[in-house]
Amino acid sequence: MLTYTPVSEAGGVGKTTTAATLAVSHAQAGHNVLAIDMDTQNGSLTYFFGPEYNRGDPQIDNLVRHLVGRPKGDFHDLTHEVEDGVDLIPSHNMLEDIHEFLLNEKNQAENLGESYSMYHQLHRVLQEANVRDHYDVIIVDSAGKAGPILYNALVAVRNVVIPFEATAKGQESIEGLDDLVDGLEESIGVDVGVLAVVPIGYKDTRDQREILGELRESGFSVPVIIGERGSLMEGCWKQQCSPYTYVEDHRNRKREYEIDTLEQFDELARHLEREAGLKIPEVTA
C-alpha cells in the first residue's frame, strides 16, 4: 500500500495540485485511490474536484466527527467519487477547531485514567475502517503548518512528497520540514520517510541547478522536475479538474509542453508506486 502526504512549509508551490494530479494518475493506472482533504483553506482538494458538498453544514457527518469518536455514520459513507474514480473525503469547517476538539478528548481521557494521543486519531480511524482492504493508495492533503492536522496526517501515512520552488526560500522550507519531522519522530516515535522532492516552476537557472545538486547530495530523491506551468494549473483550478481532464476537454489544441507535464506526473506516480512495492501496470491511461 502507498500512503503519503504532499507537504510544504511554503505556500503557493502546488501542494494541492500535486496531490490531485497524482491521485488521478494512480487511479488511471488502475489503483484504488482514497484522497483525504484535511486542508482548512478554501483552495483545497474539495474545491479542486468540486463535489456537491456543504463543508459548512455542522449537522452532516464528516471526518472530524470520526476523529473525535462521534461519527454519525460509516467511515466509507464520507467518500465522494470524483474524477477517474478517485474517492475523496472532503474537508469540513470543523477542521478549523480540531485542536480544541482533540484537546477536549485528551483531557476527558486523562481524567478517566486513560491514555490518549491527539496525533494518532486519523491513524486509528483508518485502521478501524480497514482501508487497506479497500484502497491501494491513500493521499492526505494536509495543512502546511505544524499542528494537529499535519501531525495526524504524518502519523497516519508515514511518508511525504515535497513540492517546492528551487529557490533559497524553498530550500529553507525543506530544511524546516526536515526539522519538524525529526522532532515528531523523537516525540511520538514514528518514522517518516521522504519519498520524493518535486521542483515545480523550474527555470533551469544556475542557482536552481546548484540547489538541486545540493538536495541530491543530501540524499533526497528528485525523480522529476516540473517546469513553469502556471496557465495549465490556473486552468485546472478554474475548471475544477485535474490537468489530464483539462488538457483533454478544455484545450482547443494540444500543447506539447503540457503533454510532457502529464507524462512527468505519471513518471512521478510510477516512482512512488515502486517505492511502496505496488505492482506497476503494463499499460496506463
Rank of each mutant, 00 (worst) to 15 (best):
H26A: 13
S142R: 12
S242E: 01
A143V: 10
D191V: 14
R229F: 05
G176K: 07
L112G: 08
K203S: 09
I211D: 00
Y116M: 12
V24E: 12
A29Q: 13
Y257N: 11
N104A: 13
H26N: 13
T18E: 12
I226W: 13
L272P: 04
T79I: 11
I162W: 00
F101A: 08
E105R: 14
L95C: 03
E210M: 12
I149K: 10
T18C: 11
L112I: 07
R209F: 07
I60M: 13
H76V: 10
Q108V: 13
E267D: 14
H80R: 15
L232S: 05
G85R: 05
N107W: 10
E81P: 13
A153C: 10
P71Y: 02
Y151M: 07
V181E: 06
Y47N: 14
P90V: 04
Y4G: 02
E234P: 09
V161A: 04
W237D: 05
D266H: 12
L45Q: 09
E234K: 15
S115C: 08
A27Y: 00
Q121T: 10
L102I: 11
M118L: 14
V125L: 01
P148Q: 08
D74F: 14
V140Q: 13
V7G: 04
G170D: 04
E185R: 11
R255P: 00
T167V: 03
P199C: 13
A276R: 09
H99N: 14
Y135I: 02
D77S: 13
I188N: 04
A23P: 00
Q28S: 12
I200S: 09
G213V: 03
N104S: 14
C236Y: 00
A23Q: 01
N111S: 10
Y151R: 05
E175P: 07
V283N: 09
S117I: 06
V131T: 14
T21N: 05
M38H: 09
V68W: 01
P281C: 05
C241N: 05
A27M: 03
L34H: 01
E282Y: 06
C236I: 00
K254M: 08
P243N: 04
A35M: 06
R158A: 06
H92E: 07
S91H: 02
D260R: 13
N104H: 15
G14T: 10
N152L: 08
H271L: 03
A196K: 00
L278H: 08
T167S: 12
I226Y: 11
D249E: 15
L63D: 04
Y119T: 10
S173Q: 10
